[in-house]
């Protein structure tokens, strides 16, 4: 079915390799741990090379302000859906198509400008 070893073949190879990495890396790390000799002491458990000794729990509630960055990121991510097929077809596109894509980007950019104006990206 996959008769041309082109773009799709590349995608498939990437999909298989990333999946393999997800699955095999934890297994490999576990196997490495099996053969290791355990001889812990306090110095070994200190923070590696640099950094401060953490105070309290490390799992803290992050500041809610990051939410706005997430929202803007999602908006531009969905914009990328539209720009991806447009970019692949861009080679034989004319002025009208370029204008349509620019208009689309401008429309979404208004949201970004609004967020900028309202100062949600400032850390007050």
């Amino acid at each position: 079915m996959l008769n041309s070893f082109g773009l799709l073949g590349m995608f498939l190879i990437i999909a298989i390799l990333v999946t393999a990495a997800f699955v095999l890396i934890p297994i490999a790390l576990r196997l490495v741990g099996l053969g290791a000799r355990r001889n812990p002491n306090t110095d070994k458990y200190t923070i590696y090379e640099c950094g401060m000794v953490s105070v309290g729990k490390t799992h803290i509630q992050f500041n809610f302000r990051y939410y706005f960055f997430a929202v803007l990121f999602v908006a531009f991510d969905v914009l990328a859906i539209f720009l991806f097929p447009w970019a692949l077809w861009m080679g034989n596109a004319g002025v009208f198509e370029l204008g349509a894509a620019v208009l689309l980007v401008v429309i979404v950019l208004i949201g970004y400008l609004y967020a900028w104006k309202k100062g949600v990206m400032q850390w007050k």
């Binding site: 008769n3 041309s4 082109g6 773009l7 799709l8 908006a75 969905v78 914009l79 539209f82 991806f84 097929p85 447009w86 970019a87 692949l88 077809w89 861009m90 596109a93 009208f96 198509e97 349509a100 894509a101 208009l103 689309l104 429309i107 979404v108 208004i110 949201g111």
Partner: peptide
Amino acid sequence: LADTADIGQRLFSENGYVVPVQIAGLMLL
């Protein structure tokens, strides 16, 4: 095979779905 460019043509060409695409952009906004 690899028909993404055709989707781009359908979405952005003059006799395609330009207006729905812009409306989708407004929805995103």
